[in-house]
């Protein structure tokens, strides 16, 4: 190892370091600093210590948005994961049909999140005529999906499931690939039923991929801004105002940047808990 080699390695890595330091690390530091001040409309108006944090932790709006985030994330997780798992099992074999089907299922995931939500907003809209027709068939008549708190949450969850179950499918397919096919064949020969194979062979062998998929989906849902911003804007009556949406509004609509930064720091720390879990699982999986 020559000294000049190490020097050129550092030089090669320098651009990466500069970009990430300036646009990812520096913002977090600035954020931590701003979060201790009263900042309104870009003007720093004085040091307030942990007042911003105290204000957030005791605010009823934050409490409401935490609750909304929890409901949305778990609802979206259950439906997205279940559908993704079903798709992975159904499209497991690498036949030409299955490869084509995987591509079709992935299209909602590939297009812009904003556009996907816009397309669903049109389906939910009463004027499109679809929801009155479907709900009318069940005798509900004139229902506006995004104007009813519970239905609006359902609309958000459906958006998540429609877009992201393909993502879950891809992650789980990679896990299924690592399970030797002979095990299934051997179990079938031994007379095991499909249900038995699923619960006693597939599930235990896929423990790690399942955990990884669940955590990655959770991180994604907790931090999703586009679905509520486009579909409901947080309404009706704040029933779909997630934590990230609340932070977005405090920062960019109310311009209370000190408090928004404190909220961002808290959300960041919360995320890091999940990321740490993910890294631990990876390390454990590598040791197995």
């Amino acid at each position: 190892m020559r000294a000049s080699d190490a020097r050129s390695a550092y030089l090669m890595f320098l651009p990466v370091l500069i970009i990430e330091a300036a646009l990812v690390v520096a913002p977090l530091i600035i954020s931590g600093w701003y979060s201790l001040y009263n900042v309104r409309y870009f003007k720093i108006r004085g040091f307030v210590g942990f007042d911003n944090y105290w204000h957030i932790l005791t605010s009823s709006s934050v409490l409401n948005s935490l609750f909304v985030t929890a409901i949305f994330s778990f609802g979206a997780l259950i439906f997205t994961f279940t559908l993704g798992f079903a798709l992975a099992l159904w499209l497991q074999k690498d036949t030409a049909t299955n490869v084509a089907m995987r591509a079709i299922v992935l299209i909602p995931y590939m297009i812009a999140m904003l556009v996907g939500s816009m397309l669903l907003k049109w389906i939910y809209a009463r004027e499109s005529g679809l929801s009155p027709m479907i709900f009318g068939a069940f005798g509900f008549g004139d229902v506006s999906i995004l104007a009813d708190p519970q239905l609006a949450m359902g609309g958000l969850v459906f958006n998540a499931m429609w877009r992201d179950s393909a993502f879950a499918m891809i992650l789980l397919l990679a896990g299924l690939k690592s399970v030797p096919v002979q095990i299934f064949a051997a179990a079938r020969v031994d007379g095991a039923s499909r249900l038995y194979i699923f619960w006693r062979i597939v599930m235990p062998l896929l423990r790690i991929p399942i955990l990884i998929t669940v955590i990655r989906l959770l991180i994604h849902f907790i931090n999703t801004l586009t679905f509520p911003l486009v579909l409901t804007g947080g309404g009706p009556a704040n029933s779909t105002e997630t934590l990230v949406l609340y932070m977005f509004r405090r920062g960019f609509q109310d311009s209370v940047l000190g408090e928004a930064n404190a909220l961002a720091i808290l959300i960041f720390v919360g995320n890091m808990v999940f990321v740490a879990m993910l890294l631990l699982i990876f390390r454990k999986a590598q040791r197995l």
Binding site: F248, G251, A260
Partner: peptide, 11 residues
């Protein structure tokens, strides 16, 4: 996640 960077990045 990008969402937790939005407000800091704006500043």
């Amino acid at each position: 996640p990008i969402a937790s960077l939005l407000v800091p990045t704006y500043s």
